[in-house]
């Protein structure tokens, strides 16, 4: 990271700690491609890589008070990104352990020809994906998208901050998307 950029980002981070939203937006916008490159070098799967970048941004937001003005900025960001990568690897390992691989030889032939997911099946797929979410994420998605509440109202109903609710909803969307991907349902079919 160049010294000039390090100073600029450090200044923006300090402004963000004081509550300067425009400079914070600038910081996150400039950081995003940098993080994409950082994470992309360690993860080949581009979708997973983007998920990790989003997690880094969320972690950075949650941990922004842990940045000390006298410390360099880049080691702080790198540590957050590394932790997000480690968390991702752990989650993937846990998920892989839970899933059972189906050997092609042992999969029974379908009695009827497989059909593409039809429009009328999609709500059920969505419902299943929603039901599979952890309670907190499902509640966030339901409050915002099924009950049509504003983020502020939904946060009040859930008893959490607006930011926390958004993070939960965001994670819920991602988990649902991953679930639909696994079921072979394309996003534009929804």
């Amino acid at each position: 990271m160049s010294e000039e950029r390090e100073d600029r980002w450090r200044g923006w981070m300090l402004a963000a700690q004081r509550g300067d939203a425009p400079l914070y937006a600038k910081l996150l916008t400039e950081l995003t491609p940098y993080l994409r490159a950082f994470v992309g070098r360690r993860l080949l799967d581009s979708t997973a890589s983007e998920d990790v970048v989003q997690n880094v941004l969320i972690s950075l937001h949650r941990a922004r008070h842990t940045y000390r003005p006298e410390r360099p900025f880049s080691p702080w960001v790198h540590a957050i990104a590394r932790n997000a990568l480690i968390d991702f690897a752990r989650q993937r390992t846990r998920r892989t352990k839970r899933e059972t691989s189906l050997d092609a030889d042992h999969v029974a032939e379908p009695a009827v020809a497989a059909v593409e997911p039809r429009a009328e099946q999609l709500p059920q797929a969505l419902e299943d994906a929603l039901a599979a979410l952890p309670n907190s994420q499902r509640e966030a998605v339901e409050l915002i998208h099924l009950e049509g509440l504003s983020v502020a109202e939904a946060a009040e109903r859930a008893g959490v901050t607006k930011s926390a609710l958004k993070v939960r909803a965001h994670r819920g969307y991602r988990a649902m998307r991953a679930s639909l991907d696994r079921d072979g349902i394309a996003e534009d079919e929804l």
């Binding site: 939203a21 937006a25 965001h170």
Partner: peptide
């Protein structure tokens, strides 16, 4: 989604006291 997330996070920014 990442761009939306960045906009959301910036919109929700509140001042914090460093540790």
């Amino acid at each position: 989604l990442t761009d939306e997330l960045v906009a959301d996070l910036a919109r929700d920014l509140e001042p914090v006291r460093p540790v």
